[in-house]
């Protein structure tokens, strides 16, 4: 039986006295791919960022691999974050170092890998995302799709147990969306646990084990792709999907 990877209980978040996450209870099992969809401003990013404490919850708890990480001191939190890779909409590669160094930095500094070992591992990962030939290029010279694939390799270099994606393809030109989704699909196939916020409904339908619909700071509905896309129960899910699929 698969073990519990992440669990949230009564998770809430307020910004300046406005509550944007209004109590979420959810579980992610090991090996599961969760896709979160929902309208803009619904709280998807805020929820995802609370899973690795980039955003501190106002109330409630997050449990990761059996450990409550909600109020961990900074140094313990670093150890937890190693195991949770995160990929951002805006890539956030480090512009002051080349691609290889971007990928090799954290293993060296955090895990204490030797430079040689870290570089070799980085090359393997870059090869895996199809960018071995760009190892010595600087991020600014890469296309958006290439940058995002490097960002995925960078997160993988820490050997995470779960990968969090926040709209990884939203900033990309349409012709580059495919190459990034392909890499993510490959990861899912290898059994990586993933939580993905995206507007790519095709990807959700094909890859997700569970789809969560989030709106107004609550988890309005969740189910298998078939349940959500073909037989949505919630009225807001229906109108959201109607609008999205129309396009």
């Amino acid at each position: 039986m698969p073990s519990m990877m992440i669990e949230t209980k009564g998770l809430k978040k307020s910004f300046d006295h406005t509550e944007v996450i209004k109590g979420i209870d959810a579980q992610v099992q090991q090996g599961q791919v969760i896709v979160i969809i929902g309208p803009s401003g619904g709280g998807k990013s805020t929820f995802l960022r609370m899973l690795n404490m980039l955003e501190q919850p106002t109330a409630g708890t997050v449990t990761f691999e059996g450990q409550n990480i909600t109020d961990l001191p900074a140094n313990k939190l670093d150890t937890v974050r190693e195991k949770m890779g995160m990929v951002f909409q805006s890539f956030n590669l480090f512009p002051n170092m080349d691609v290889l160094a971007n990928v090799a930095l954290a293993p060296q500094r955090v895990k204490g890998s030797s430079q040689k070992a870290a570089s070799e591992q980085a090359m393997t990962l870059l090869d895996q995302v199809g960018l071995a030939d760009k190892a010595h290029a600087y991020p600014a010279s890469l296309s958006g799709g290439q940058q995002q694939r490097v960002a995925i390799a960078r997160a993988l270099a820490m050997g995470p147990d779960v990968m969090l994606f926040d709209e990884p393809t939203s900033a990309l030109d349409p012709e580059m969306v495919g190459e990034v989704l392909k890499v993510m699909q490959g990861l899912a196939k290898e059994g990586m646990t993933m939580v993905v916020v995206t507007h790519e409904m095709g990807f959700a339908r094909k890859v997700a084990d569970e789809v969560w619909f989030m709106d107004g700071g609550v988890l309005a509905e969740k189910g298998t792709p078939e349940q959500i896309f073909d037989h949505p129960q919630n009225e807001r899910t229906q109108s959201f999907l109607a609008k999205v699929l129309e396009q």
Binding site: S90, F94, A106, R109, M158
Partner: peptide, 27 residues
């Protein structure tokens, strides 16, 4: 330096010190 740089570094498990030293201060 864009806020996303700190977030990316911290999400990799880099400490505050290393984040400053290798990512933020050089930029």
């Amino acid at each position: 330096v864009p806020k996303g740089q700190v977030e990316a570094a911290r999400s990799l498990g880099l400490s505050y010190k290393d984040t400053m030293r290798y990512v933020i201060l050089p930029q």
